[in-house]
Design a protein around this nucleic acid. Sequence first.
RNA 1: GGGAGUGUGCCCGAGUGGUUAAUGGGGACGGGCUGUAAACCCGUUGGCUAUGCCUACUAAGGUUCGAAUCCUUACGCUCCCA
Length: 324
Amino acid sequence: MSSPDGLWCDVIAVVGPTASGKSALADELAVRLGTEVVSADAMQVYRRMDIGTAKTPPDERRVPLLCVDVADPSETYSVACYEREAHACVDRLVGEGRAAIVCGGTGLYVRAALEDMDFPSGDQTNNPVRERYARLAEELGPQRLHDLLAARDPQSAALIHPNNTRRVVRAFELLEQGLSYACQHEGLHVRTNRHPTLVVGLTMDREVLYERINARVDRMMEQGLVDEVRGLADEGLAESLTSRQAIGYREILAALAGECTMEQAVEDIKRATRRYAKRQLSWFRGDERVVWIDALSGDVGSLADHVMELARRSPGESPDGGRG
RNA sequence: GGGAGUGUGCCCGAGUGGUUAAUGGGGACGGGCUGUAAACCCGUUGGCUAUGCCUACUAAGGUUCGAAUCCUUACGCUCCCA
């Protein structure tokens, strides 16, 4: 294989919870390897959502940041769209004999970038079928909708908790396309990399992480998060299906609508971010490919040294690396 | 100084003599996840040498077969009159 710069891998993924320093490390790695960074973040795909998504400002990027600013906040983006774009970016870099640096905290997007997810083709996220079942869910209530699914597709129903209406609706949507949620669920845990990949996970002491999150939210406020949200609200963010669900945006939106004080909104953002970090940790802990390194063990430079060492070792000697 | 309240698990807050280790909410922790994923959903949350035991509703006594629930005192907090 091409293995650039004496590396055993073609892709280096940097994952971990928010505020753990992924972006800086990815940027450093990309500089050293003369390559580019592919973002794996579900919210950074949106244009003009910069401060709240902690997008590295263009003038601070030393290498191109891909898969960022590819959608309008009014659009409803999805993993399937992301997968296509991410694969194109990764393949281009690898094709040029360069290692692709994938960096992000959205677990599902990371998988989409690294693996072939094979999402069934079909309608957009926003579609009449989904809307119809969503409405039905409201009429019947979660339990009865789930009962309905159980009658038509017991295997899928068994996999989805009755309260998880979103998934139940999605199962119906697949059913309409002649597919079963249960079928695609099979082999869910088999992770097959498209290219030889090193996945590095950044962790740190939970308390320190939370302090960093709090500080980062305060910084976002100083940088003008409220103005950013206000601007987006003027162009209809509040109606958007996906982007208004972003942490930081929905809370400020609520405050702007007079539902709570701005002070309360800031607290809500911090808490939501903490929880998000926890979920991210939970997701990545379940990924056996991840080689964890302590983000507090050194500065960006030494962390990059560490990663380079892992990437140069042959897969056989590395603790976990080469699988897939 | 006098009077009236109140004190519950990490926090808030129900419970006013008996299926009570104690409803509920928050927080925290853990988990799930294949087209909204920063979303959506679930579980745990006194301790243990655990099919049972111990410690628990400010503290110490008391009443009772039995108390977080009733009584006494102490301490803390709140309010009212001075």
